[in-house]
Computed example of a mutant assay.
Amino acid sequence: MTTWITICDTCKHEDWAERGMEQTDGEVLAALIEAQADGTAVRTRRVSCLMGCDNSCNVAIQANGKLCYTLGRFEVSEDAAQGIVDYAVAHADSDTGQVPYREWPQAVKGHFVTRHAPLPEDT
């Protein structure tokens, strides 16, 4: 099973326009995550809007048959991107998608927004 990092590329912090950004905060974070994920066991994809605007910047960590997580409230930084990728790699290594708290990268602590149970198997 492949673990995916789904990245909202339309996320913007409230001061986005005042900072004169040419790209959204989500686009900048997506590029950082994609660079950090290159060569790992996880894959990335961009989507336009995860509907978590109050929690930008948002990502989802997902895999079939595993717990899925939405994380947000990230500042755009290489540390945040690396923490997201490191957590996703641990998610990929887990049979259930659950990663023990003691193994969470510091950069993701305090950023979990939701957890979703895996979809049931069709029978």
Rank of each mutant, 00 (worst) to 15 (best):
E34L: 03
E22V: 11
H111S: 12
D95Y: 02
Y87V: 00
P100H: 13
I33S: 11
L119Q: 12
A30K: 12
G110C: 11
H116L: 15
W16A: 08
V85T: 07
D122S: 15
T44Q: 13
G39N: 05
Y87E: 01
G52P: 00
R43L: 14
L67G: 00
V76P: 02
A90R: 15
P100Q: 12
P118Y: 13
Q82H: 10
D54L: 12
A90S: 12
S56D: 03
K66R: 15
L50R: 08
Q36F: 05
Q62V: 09
Q106C: 01
S56F: 04
D122K: 15
E103T: 10
T96H: 10
H116P: 00
Q82V: 01
E22L: 14
E78D: 11
C49R: 10
G65R: 12
G20R: 09
T114R: 13
G26L: 09
D25P: 07
G52V: 01
A30I: 05
V89D: 03
E103R: 15
A90P: 00
V108Y: 08
E34W: 02
G83H: 04
L119H: 07
I5P: 00
A31Q: 13
D15Y: 11
M51N: 11
A80C: 04
K12V: 01
Q36R: 15
D54F: 06
V108F: 05
D79Y: 09
A60L: 07
V85N: 04
E78P: 02
M51C: 06
M51D: 08
A88T: 04
V42Y: 10
A107Y: 04
T2K: 15
M21D: 07
S94Q: 06
G26A: 08
G39L: 08
T114H: 12
V47D: 02
C8Q: 06
V76S: 03
I5H: 04
T70V: 13
G110Y: 11
G83I: 04
E27N: 09
E34C: 07
F112P: 00
R46L: 03
E121I: 15
Q23S: 07
